[in-house]
Amino acid sequence: MSAVIHARDLGKRYGANVALDRVSFDIEAGRIVGLIGPNGAGKTTALKAILGLSEFEGELGVLGFDPRTERAQLMEQVCFIADVAVLPRWLRVGEAIDFVAGVHPRFSREKCEAFLANTKIARSMRVRELSKGMIVQLHLALVMAIDARVLILDEPTLGLDILYRKTFYESLLSDYFDENKTIIVTTHQVEEVEHILTDLIFIRDGRIVLDASMEAIAERYTEVMVNPDKADAARALKPLNERSIFGKSIFLFDGVERARLAELGELHKPSIADLFVATMKGTYA
């Protein structure tokens, strides 16, 4: 089957600054992909290219459309939430629903109103009267009522408190996601998304440094907690990263046999955050 998003040698430069350095990747349907990278790594540049919001070099197809020339058709199938602050402040909730219902052929007013019924948001309120958390609830209700094939989330929970962040991802998973949909999410709060992701793409300095499914990552990477006496033996196996805690050293290994590592100490599954820190070591140095 063909990929939902297909990128070959995707590049973008701002003057002398290379934001995306000829990256290639494919994203299949029914996946939840985390696009993770430090600030300025090129995440937003990649998303903007996918959404047809900027020019780019190379080849890029989204659901078979060219985002540069077929934006309007593309946006019938692709939804995105950029971040909390993009709903216009003068807009009333009722107007927002009427407008999206008017221009979007795949929008279901009933679904949207059902989502909003669980919140304190009233139709007559203006966006400027809503709290940040309520704005994201409204935006999510509008987007989840659209039967789209791709949903793109760019730092969707930035600045929200933990309650809103939790319910945000919970309702995405339980009320929205299914095998026909694809979600791409960028965020700094890696811990919150790691249990919902199916795939992970690490991006650094405009290049993809890791592109794998979560199962593959669990296969490949292992963390070992090693007593000081075996630390040198562990270092000999070229760990990705080393940190110490309670007098023990924790080593992160990429593709080293489980059996050999088990001799050194206790094995763990590394968290994405640890993997991220290890991979991005020296980014800001």
Binding site: L51, L53, R71, A72, Q73, L74, M75, E76, C79, F80, I81, A82, A85, V86, L87, P88, R89, V100, V103, H104, P105, H139, V143
Partner: peptide
């Protein structure tokens, strides 16, 4: 104005041509 308050990103997320 919609570029300044970034709401252009919301309007552009809908299937409407420029």
């Amino acid at each position: 104005d919609d570029r300044r308050d970034r709401s252009v990103l919301f309007w552009k997320s809908l299937p409407v041509t420029d």
